[in-house]
């Protein structure tokens, strides 16, 4: 029972004044926050996503990363990789499930270690089993969700992820259906460094619409990705 609930109870119950006072003092002794296991505590997020999740992310959180329209799919993928690199613990393992078009060099530039990065194929018929295997073993899973996933399967996966403290980053056509504790929608991209026939792409500013449950506030943010 939390301290507030106990204090409230002390005021509401029909009690003699001295007993009420005793109950009030007991309520004051309950610690303000219940203790949390170290593995369940939010971990700080690194990289550009530090400003999106300033309080860190609890391992086991599911986040969907999608694009507002198809032309921004590559930018959404860049967001997903940046987020994965931000949340992976030191020496942690990352798997990329069913994202056949991911630019591996971009993942390296974002800070993922190739010797701890595993690419798993996920044909539609075996998607659920591959995803479960990945969620149960890896620290971070970048998961391509098919267009119309079975909702029961999605709920089961999210539950396993919470239980095993695996951070799931859902992308692909079904990312919006995934839901998750936070949703990151890439709505616009501006690239810098390119002129009219000269220069080269250098860095980009993405606009993301953020939405979610709990401590995640719905808002629009601008992030700088790239060096």
């Amino acid at each position: 029972m939390s301290a507030e609930a106990a204090a409230e109870l002390a005021e509401q119950l029909p009690l003699e004044p001295n007993r009420r006072a005793a109950l009030r003092s007991l309520a004051g002794k309950i610690p303000q926050s219940t203790p949390v296991l170290a593995s369940q505590r939010p971990r700080p997020v690194g990289g550009p996503y530090a400003e999106v999740f300033p309080n860190g992310l609890r391992p086991g959180t599911s986040i969907s990363v999608s694009a507002a329209h198809p032309a921004l799919e590559a930018a959404a993928l860049r967001n997903a990789v940046a987020l994965a690199a931000g949340v992976v613990p030191p020496d942690g393992w990352v798997s990329v499930v069913g994202v056949s078009s991911l630019g591996v060099l971009a993942a390296v530039e974002a800070g993922l270690a190739l010797d701890h990065l595993v690419f798993l194929e996920a044909p539609t018929t075996a998607w659920g089993s591959v995803a479960v295997a990945a969620v149960e073993a890896f620290d971070v899973v970048v998961l391509a969700v098919p267009a119309r996933p079975r909702l029961a399967e999605v709920r089961r996966l999210a539950g396993r992820a919470r239980e095993r403290s695996t951070t799931v980053i859902a992308t692909g056509p079904g990312a919006a259906a995934w839901g998750g504790e936070a949703r990151v929608v890439t709505s616009a991209v501006t690239w810098h460094g390119l002129g009219d026939g000269h220069g080269s792409l250098r860095s980009c500013r993405v606009t993301v619409d953020l939405d979610g449950r709990g401590s995640v506030r719905a808002r629009r943010m601008e992030l700088m990705l790239g060096p």
Partner: peptide, 11 residues
């Protein structure tokens, strides 16, 4: 082509 690398590479 200089960095950054593309995030999506078509098979």
């Amino acid at each position: 082509v200089p960095a950054p690398a593309p995030a999506m590479v078509l098979a």
